[in-house]
């Protein structure tokens, strides 16, 4: 985990294509993105349209009119589900940009400059790593106004610790390489070295890490919304689950209102996880064998071999 080998982005892409897991993850994410972008074309109902409902419209079973039934307010679950992708992906994208920027900067600066700078930055990272994320996010969002911007900011500003640690250790290993030492010896400026030599070799790792940070941000957003701290003007998957859970979907037996939004979260997060795992394998291929691994029988000689020598004298230099 700590020491990763270094590759260029081009070689990285070529290996990436050979990892089916990463490709499946990428396709899953692309489907989610297309659904989010084309939501008005896919969703049969507009979730913001005002509808008149009667008691019979609440939690109706899936039917041709409502493929995935209706929710506690008589709205179409499938349409809400499609539109919900927008919130999750937006939060995931923007929060992770913030996290990656902070974590990447801290990691590179700490790893490259070393000394007291590194000590202070990494000590701070350690503290932030120990403080439990979710309760802190809950506290801050509860104290401020729960809006989309606030949620993105809070999740982004608190989600950088693992990135900082990873990027720092990668920077340390890149820094020790010959061409970096040479560039330093001929007097290239530090920002120049970082831009030209360090960044290109840390970037693949950052890309892999981004995918995982996105999935964590999406999980955090949905948890926050489920706990009732989502943006009240938007309908995210977490929000849908909050409404369903607190407004009687359990007792009504409305599994469609409970399963559907969670499926969306799992789809996106699993897509990220598969992509991230595949990318990691492509970036840092590991020898997957060890001293106890058995791929085949160790002795595979022809049956005749044992018999062939059985009768012969015992030694080459027979006396």
């Amino acid at each position: 985990m700590e020491s990763t080998s270094v590759t260029s982005l081009g070689a990285f892409w070529r290996t990436f294509r050979q990892h089916p897991m990463a490709m499946i993850g990428l396709v899953m994410l692309l489907i989610a993105i297309i659904a989010a972008v084309c939501a008005p074309l896919i969703a049969p109902y507009d979730p913001k349209a005002i509808i008149r409902i009667t008691i019979d419209d609440i939690y109706t079973r899936p039917s041709p009119a409502h493929w995935l039934g209706t929710d506690d307010a008589g709205r179409d679950v499938f349409s809400n589900f499609i539109y919900g992708a927008r919130v999750s992906l937006t939060v995931g994208l923007f929060a992770s940009i913030i996290s990656i920027f902070i974590g990447g900067t801290i990691g590179i600066v700490a790893g490259f400059y070393g000394g007291r700078t590194e000590n202070i930055l990494m000590r701070f990272t350690d503290i932030m790593l120990v403080i439990p994320d979710l309760p802190l996010i809950v506290v801050i969002v509860a104290l401020t106004r729960p809006s989309l911007t606030n949620i993105i900011l809070v999740i982004g500003l608190l989600g950088w610790t693992s990135t900082a640690r990873l990027v720092r250790s990668q920077t340390l290993s890149v820094k020790a390489r010959k061409f970096v030492l040479r560039a330093q010896a001929v007097g290239a400026s530090r920002p120049y070295i970082i831009r030209r030599h360090i960044l290109p070799l840390v970037l693949p790792l950052i890309v892999v890490n981004t995918v995982l940070v996105i999935s964590l941000a999406i999980l955090n957003e949905s948890t926050l919304s489920f706990l009732g701290l989502g943006d009240p003007t938007l309908l995210s998957w977490g929000q849908m689950l909050n409404y369903a859970f607190t407004r009687g979907a359990m007792s009504a037996g409305a599994w469609w209102a409970l399963v559907t939004p969670g499926f969306g979260i799992v789809w996106v997060v699993l897509g990220c996880t598969l992509l991230g795992h595949g990318l990691e394998q492509a970036l840092n291929p590991r020898a997957e064998t060890h001293h106890l691994a058995q791929l085949h029988e160790q002795v595979a000689r022809p049956a005749s071999a044992a018999a062939r020598f059985a009768g012969e004298p015992m030694s080459l230099s027979s006396d």
Binding site: S222, T223, M250, L258, G262, I265, V266, V269, L270, T273
Partner: peptide
């Protein structure tokens, strides 16, 4: 990988729904 991707609260809801 699948277990890691499950939102904790959602898994809880589904298990609670089925269990109860």
């Amino acid at each position: 990988l699948l277990a890691w991707s499950l939102p904790t609260f959602w898994l809880g809801i589904i298990l609670l729904f089925a269990g109860s």
